[in-house]
Structures are given as C-alpha cells and as structure tokens.
Amino acid sequence: MWRTIRSWFHPRELREVGTTPDYRFSLANERTFLAWLRTGLALIAGGLAVAQFLPRLSTPQVREALAVGLLALGALVAVRAVDHWARTERAIRLGEELPASRFPAVLALMVGVGAILLIVAVLTGAIRGR
C-alpha cells in the first residue's frame, strides 16, 4: 500500500515505466482526474453546507450524519481520483488495457439513494424550511 501511495507523489517512478505516450492521452487522463477532484470538492462543500445551514431536524443527529457522510464521500472520491489517475497513466505508458472501475457506478448509486432519502424526508416533513 505504501508503495502505491508513494508512486502518487513521485511522478519520476511513474515516468520510468513503459514509454512516453502521446501527450493528448496523458492530458485527457489529467482532465478526468481534475473532474473527479471537482466532484470530491462539491461533496465536501455540500457536507459543510449541511452542517452550517440545514436547520435541526426532527430526528436527532440526522443532520450531522448527513454532513459527515458527504464529507467522507468527498474525501473518498479525492483519494480514489488520484489512485485511478496513477493506474490509468501506468496502463497508457505500458500500452495495456485501461483499468476498469466500478467506482463511478457506486458513486452514482450512492448519490441517487441519498437524493431519494432526502425527497422522502422533505415529503414526510422531517426537513422543513426555516
């Protein structure tokens, strides 16, 4: 595990693998990485917004659980982004098939389930405006 994390922060190790690819592929991989980081930052911002601006709910600690859940998901997305970037860059340099990932589907399901739960909370009156 430490070797994997170390490779994220030592691009020299990554550049020593395989051959230099067409720069367009590396830049496309970097754009995808930055998109994932924006997603992580949006989830973190949502968690902070819930913690600061959502009024207390009828069920105790729901607001805090929602805020912590969004913050943790944002952190997970950021870590997953750098891991996927490094694995993809390595595959590009080695001319291998790009690594498959279920994470986008899992993230989409988590966001969808969260949205449905919030809809139910609004419709049942568990969340009310100020």
Score class of each variant (00 low, 15 high):
L118P: 01
R102I: 10
E96Q: 15
R90V: 01
A45N: 07
P11V: 05
G114W: 04
R87E: 11
R31Y: 10
V82H: 09
D83Y: 12
A108R: 08
T32Y: 07
V77W: 01
F25R: 09
T20L: 15
L57T: 00
F53Y: 13
E13D: 15
R15V: 06
T4M: 14
R87F: 07
A42K: 07
I5T: 13
T4N: 14
F103N: 02
R38Y: 11
G46V: 00
T59G: 02
A121N: 02
G112H: 09
V77F: 04
L27P: 04
A28S: 14
R6F: 11
L94E: 12
R93W: 06
A75P: 01
L117Q: 09
A86P: 00
L54M: 14
V77G: 00
N29H: 05
S101P: 07
R80Q: 15
V50G: 02
I44V: 12
A81P: 01
T88F: 02
V79R: 08
A108K: 07
R31Q: 10
A49W: 14
L76C: 09
R102P: 09
E64S: 12
G95V: 02
R24C: 02
L37R: 04
R90M: 06
T124C: 05
A86G: 03
G74Q: 00
G125A: 02
L43Q: 03
R128D: 06
G129E: 11
A65L: 12
P99A: 06
R87N: 11
A75H: 04
A91Y: 02
W36Q: 02
L109R: 10
Q52M: 14
G129A: 14
V68R: 07
L76G: 03
G69N: 08
G114A: 06
F53W: 12
L98V: 04
R93C: 03
F53S: 06
W2N: 12
T32K: 04
G112N: 08
L37C: 09
L54E: 02
A49F: 13
P104L: 07
A121W: 00
W85L: 06
Q52S: 13
L70Y: 03
I5Q: 13
L107E: 04
R128N: 08
I5G: 09
A72V: 12
L66E: 02
V120N: 07
W36M: 04
R90A: 05
W36I: 00
V62H: 08
S58P: 01
L54T: 04
E16N: 13
V120F: 13
R102N: 15
S26K: 05
P99M: 07
A28Y: 12
A108W: 13
A49H: 10
V68G: 03
F9L: 15
L117N: 09
S26V: 08
E96W: 13
V111Y: 03
E97K: 13
R102T: 12
R130Y: 10
V17E: 15
R130C: 05
N29E: 06
L48Q: 08
V113M: 13
E89R: 03
P21I: 01
L34G: 06
L76H: 11
H84N: 08
T59H: 11
G40C: 02
A108E: 10
P104M: 08
R128V: 02
G95T: 00
R31E: 07
T39W: 05
G95E: 05
A105M: 14
M110I: 10
V82Q: 12
V79G: 11
L71M: 12
V79L: 15
Q52D: 12
R130K: 10
E96D: 15
T124G: 03
L37N: 04
